[in-house]
C-alpha cells in the first residue's frame, strides 16, 4: 500500500527544500493555476508555473509520477489547442470540461503530492514552530499525521482477515462490509492511541518547558530561487492591477 504521507526517508530525498518554501509554492500554485487570479492579461503564467512540479518531481526521483504527469498534462493542453477550435456542440463541451479540469487541478495536486512525500513530520513541526504557530495546534496536527499510516497499516491486516473469512464484494455479506471493517479498526485504533499517549507521557510530553526541535531546516540557494519564482507572478498581478502592465 502506498502510504507516503509525511513519511519521507531523508536518505532517499534529492533536492531539499525548506517546508516553508514548499508552503509558499503550494499557495502560489493554487492562486495562479487553480483559480487563475491573474486575470486575462496573465494567462501565460499558468503553463509556465506548471513546469515547476515537473522539475520538483524529477529532483525527488519520482520518475514514474513525473512522466505520467507530463503525458497527461501535455495531452490536455494539446486537446485544448488543437481540438477545441475544430469541434463544436457536446464534443467541444466535453473536451473543454475534461482538459480544463486536468490543466487546472493537476499541477496543484502534483505539488501537493510532492510536498507530502518529501516532508517529514518533524520538519513540518519545526517549520510551524519557526512560523510561531502555537503548540496547541502543532501537536494535534502531528498526531494526525502519525495516525494516517497507522490506520492504513491496520486496515491492510483487517482486509486480509476479511478475505480469509470470505467477506468480499460478491460474497454473501456485502451489506455488512462497512460494519465489519469498522469494528476491528476502531478497537485497534483506540488501543494504539491509548498506548501511544502512555508512551508519549513517559517520554515527558506536556512539560512546562518550551520544546526544542532537532530538525535542521533553513533557507538555502534552492529556496531562494523558488521563493523568487513565487514572487514573480504576485508582482505581475500587482502591477497589472495597478494598470501599469
Amino acid at each position: 500500500m502506498n502510504n507516503n504521507v509525511f513519511q519521507a526517508e531523508s536518505i532517499k530525498r534529492g533536492l531539499v527544500l525548506d517546508p516553508r518554501t514548499k508552503l509558499l509554492l503550494l499557495v502560489t500554485m493554487s492562486v495562479f493555476v487553480l483559480s487563475s487570479a491573474g486575470g486575462k492579461g496573465l494567462e501565460f503564467l499558468a503553463p509556465c508555473l506548471c513546469i515547476v512540479p515537473f522539475v520538483l518531481l524529477l529532483t525527488s526521483k519520482k520518475f514514474k509520477s513525473t512522466i505520467l504527469y507530463a503525458i497527461i498534462y501535455l495531452t490536455a493542453i494539446m486537446m485544448l489547442i488543437l481540438l477545441r477550435p475544430i469541434t463544436n456542440g457536446v464534443v467541444n463541451f466535453l473536451i473543454l470540461g475534461t482538459a480544463g479540469i486536468v490543466t487546472r487541478f493537476m499541477p496543484s495536486i502534483m505539488v501537493g503530492m510532492y510536498v507530502l512525500s518529501t516532508t517529514t513530520v518533524s520538519e513540518f513541526n519545526a517549520a510551524m514552530l519557526r512560523l510561531n504557530v502555537s503548540e496547541k495546534i502543532i501537536i494535534p496536527l502531528s498526531v494526525m499525521f502519525r495516525f494516517f499510516p497507522t490506520v492504513l497499516d491496520e486496515f491492510s491486516s483487517i482486509n486480509a482477515a476479511m478475505r480469509m473469512r470470505g467477506i468480499s464484494l460478491g460474497g454473501k455479506n456485502v451489506t455488512k462490509m462497512l460494519e465489519y471493517r469498522l469494528v476491528p479498526l476502531l478497537t485497534c485504533s483506540v488501543k494504539i492511541g491509548e498506548e501511544l499517549s502512555a508512551a508519549a507521557l513517559t517520554r515527558g510530553l506536556g512539560g512546562n518547558v518550551k520544546r526544542t526541535n532537532v530538525c535542521e531546516i533553513g533557507f538555502h540557494l534552492q529556496d531562494m530561487v523558488i521563493i523568487f519564482l513565487c514572487f514573480v507572478p504576485f508582482a505581475l498581478m500587482l502591477l497589472s492591477r495597478c494598470g501599469i502592465l
Binding site: 502519525r146 508519549a200 517520554r203 515527558g204
Partner: peptide, 18 residues
C-alpha cells in the same frame, strides 16, 4: 505504539526535545 514521530531520528530525539 511507542513512537510519537514517524521517523526514527525524531523518535530518538523526542524525549530530549520535550
Amino acid at each position: 505504539s511507542q513512537f510519537f514521530c514517524v521517523d526514527t531520528t525524531s523518535g530518538i530525539a523526542f524525549g530530549c526535545e520535550n
